[in-house]
């Protein structure tokens, strides 16, 4: 449930976004999420939003964390995903060991980025060879890893354990990715790279669990994207005239934007209703990701030629909504999970 304190937090985050993030949002897309922005996010206590205070985090409750992701994604989905990677993936996977907790502390105190290599549990992943797990060194390649400037990475070593690599130089030069250009995607190449084990057997299950538990966070980012692009579409349709009338005077524009906005508001109310079970969280994520793709496509279309240029800040939502769905919303796996909830037994597996 959203309380008065949460509303104060929302105002604080919104003010920060408007004053600090929004003016530099285009630079984040062009040049990547620099250390300056990350330090600024960290100084506000946003970087470690969900992390416990003894590790230097802000220890926000879930509603506060979701508000943060939602508000930040309206200006920069890349920054929001950066926070989610640390709080919903790196932190829960690392916090089971002393080495992992130290890593979380360092990431927060230095304002660095962290990543978790999710490739092995994602669809469309082409394995380029298993990693070799020596006593303390690791060799192998992981392709298409999100957050190429991450100071620390957690990955499935291929022998069932999760390991921590504390070496940013393992990332090759930037790959050109469709979405989250602020974070970038890159190949991770390890040649006798030192690692520390953060969790024993069952790496795949641990990654899978982190992915499933991130459903509300992913929904919050999707809703931030929806809000960001629809607001731009609505604002633009009020001022842009064609055939002597504002675009908002035309039924296809006004009705479509209004319908999309209605869907958004219903989903947002569900997200913050506070008593969602696993099934509802999943349903919300699937619906939010689908709406993010439809809303961003239409918002771009409303802008016409201007929407096709980065300066208007709409095209990034179109790219990022698809990237979000691909990286954190597994089209087959999530539908299998949903079907299992609906049928009460395994379904859609043939």
């Amino acid at each position: 449930m959203v309380t008065e304190e949460h509303e104060i937090l929302r105002s604080t985050v919104r003010e920060y976004v408007q004053k600090t993030l929004e003016p530099g949002a285009l630079d984040i897309e062009r040049d990547g999420l620099g250390e300056e922005i990350r330090k600024s996010v960290s100084a506000q206590g946003f970087l470690g939003a969900r992390i416990s205070s003894d590790l230097g985090g802000s220890d926000l409750d879930e509603a506060g964390y979701l508000i943060l992701l939602d508000e930040i994604a309206r200006a920069s989905p890349s920054v929001s995903v950066d926070i989610m990677l640390l709080n919903s993936f790196f932190y829960p996977l690392a916090s089971g060991s002393d080495e992992g907790r130290d890593a979380v502390k360092r990431v927060l105190s230095e304002g660095k980025g962290a990543t978790v290599v999710l490739n092995t549990i994602l669809e469309g992943y082409r394995n380029e060879g298993e990693l070799m797990d020596g006593s303390s060194k690791i060799t192998g390649v992981r392709d298409n890893v999100l957050n190429r400037n991450a100071a620390m990475s957690i990955l499935d070593a291929g022998n069932g354990s999760l390991v921590l690599v504390d070496d940013a130089s393992v990332f090759s030069k930037k790959d050109y990715s469709l979405g989250f250009r602020g974070l970038g995607m890159a190949k991770m190449e390890m040649r006798g790279t030192e690692f520390r084990t953060v969790a024993g057997k069952g790496a795949e299950h641990a990654l899978d669990r982190a992915m499933n538990e991130s459903d509300p966070a992913v929904s919050a980012i999707a809703l931030g994207i929806i809000s960001g692009c629809l607001q731009k579409g609505i604002d633009y349709s009020k001022v842009r005239k064609t055939f002597g009338q504002p675009l908002s005077a035309y039924q296809p524009v006004a009705f479509t934007l209004s319908s999309l906005k209605a869907e958004e508001e219903l989903l947002r109310r569900t997200l913050y209703s506070g008593d969602l079970g696993e099934k509802e969280k999943l349903m919300l994520k699937i619906s939010s990701l689908d709406l993010a793709k439809r809303a961003s496509k239409y918002a771009l279309q409303v802008h016409g030629g201007y929407g096709y240029f980065e300066d208007f800040g709409v095209e990034k939502f179109y790219r990022d909504s698809t990237a979000l769905a691909t990286l954190f919303g597994r089209s087959v796996r999530d539908m299998e999970r949903l079907s299992h909830h609906i049928y009460g037994e395994k379904a859609g597996f043939l």
Partner: peptide
């Protein structure tokens, strides 16, 4: 269809 592969 292509998932992670498609992104890059």
């Amino acid at each position: 269809i292509t998932g992670l592969f498609g992104l890059t």
